[in-house]
Design a binder for these strands. Structure first.
Lengths: 218, 218
DNA sequence: ACTATCTGATAGCGCCACTATCTATGATGA
DNA sequence: TCATCATAGATAGTGGCGCTATCAGATAGT
């Protein structure tokens, strides 16, 4: 298959495919002459994965490059693969070391130990949680922590479902790719389901006509 | 308070504050003379909300403008407020009408009716779900639909917790703002908790040393 | 009076995901 | 054979976004 057909099959413009190759997202085609290259089904599949991660998962091109490099490296432990994608926040950068951040960090540390989660508070995801909680606290929603356990229950349930899914189809496809797809696209699925469930819960709580009348802002 | 102090208190540079005012995210200060304006605590609070939505929630400035316009409009029904923020995907645009999209749409319609969710398949979030499922199907993960009910269970649980939280503090703060904060920042919290739970579930399933050895790609 | 600060306006910057254009080469078909 | 088309690889440009720099003219505080 030449690049034109790859483009036709996936709907990705030819210059964009070349761009992905330049950025290391997609391996170059097999050169058959100085200006002809052949692409196979692995290219097509990889290209679809890239577009899904971009369009549905919302990852940036550089993040996708990291993730795919991890996917392609058989030495890389599976649990490190997602660390490459997990840095959706600024990671460090704005190091608020105020009261809210400290309190939020303590809450997260407590949550992890209380639930017996086999992870460490140094996990970047733990920082993300405390960053979000600290932002909420600064907005006067410090008591959001009271629903954290409900959230954690649901997160455990989702994680169990994800792991079972990946584990079940280990022989069928490459497992690591399955983890990436399940994690990134699964997040998009869950997020949208949550919005649907919000509508439902709201309808059940307030009736079909929506919530009660509002008071104007102070 | 003048703009300099507002900037100092929130850590947002003065030109950025002016930019937010231009973009309609922040109301202008009360003019006390042709070139002096006074800002109050509502401005400070609003500014912190903007930064949280931007930094933690990952919303775009234009989306924040929509959401805040809805928040400030007392006529707007509460359940419409989040529609403004819910369009995190391209909404329509790439209207794949292939087999995968049709199948995914049917799956979502079935899920909604099967669970008795009081929402309609025309909800943009439903499109988001089917878009993600269709992308998965194209990647050979069509059987991800089998975990959808686990996801939906968890989503219902989260939604119930969110509604209970918002409902409980209705008198304390403005309710609509609480919904926005809970929804947007809550998503960030849940997403990070899910990543932590993944690590834990993976450790429990495979042992602390991570998953078994990998096979190289075909 | 003098300096720091302010408003409002306009222009520019840096990043990002492409997209356009070009040259030199090779494939394809009447 | 030869005209036409597609391709590889390289470089430059585009449009959107979230700011950021600079300026003129006015005011505040001391």
């Amino acid at each position: 298959m030449r690049i034109g057909e790859l483009s036709r099959r996936t709907g990705v413009p030819v210059p964009t495919i070349k761009y992905y190759v330049r950025e290391g997202l997609l391996p170059p085609g097999q050169l058959t002459s100085p200006n002809q290259a052949a692409y196979g089904e692995t290219h097509e599949r990889r290209l679809r994965l890239i577009r899904a991660l971009l369009d549905v998962g919302g990852l940036k091109v550089a993040e996708i490059a990291d993730v795919l490099a991890a996917v392609d490296d058989p030495e890389r432990p599976l649990h490190k693969v997602l660390g490459a994608a997990a840095e959706r926040f600024g990671t460090a950068e704005s190091e608020h070391d105020d009261a809210e951040s400290a309190a939020a960090h303590a809450v997260v540390t407590d949550l992890i130990s209380r639930r017996g989660w086999r992870t460490h508070e140094s996990n970047p995801a733990a920082d993300d949680v405390s960053k979000a909680l600290a932002a909420m606290a600064r907005l006067g929603h410090g008591d959001f922590v009271e629903v954290l356990d409900d959230y954690a229950d649901a997160a455990e349930q989702v994680a169990r479902a994800d792991l079972a899914y990946v584990n079940r189809r280990v022989a069928v496809e490459d497992m690591v790719e399955g983890v990436v797809i399940g994690t990134v696209l699964g997040e998009a699925v869950f997020s949208a389901l949550r919005r649907l469930a919000h509508v439902d819960a709201s309808a059940k709580l307030y009736g079909a006509d929506g919530p009660p009348e509002r008071k104007p802002k102070a």
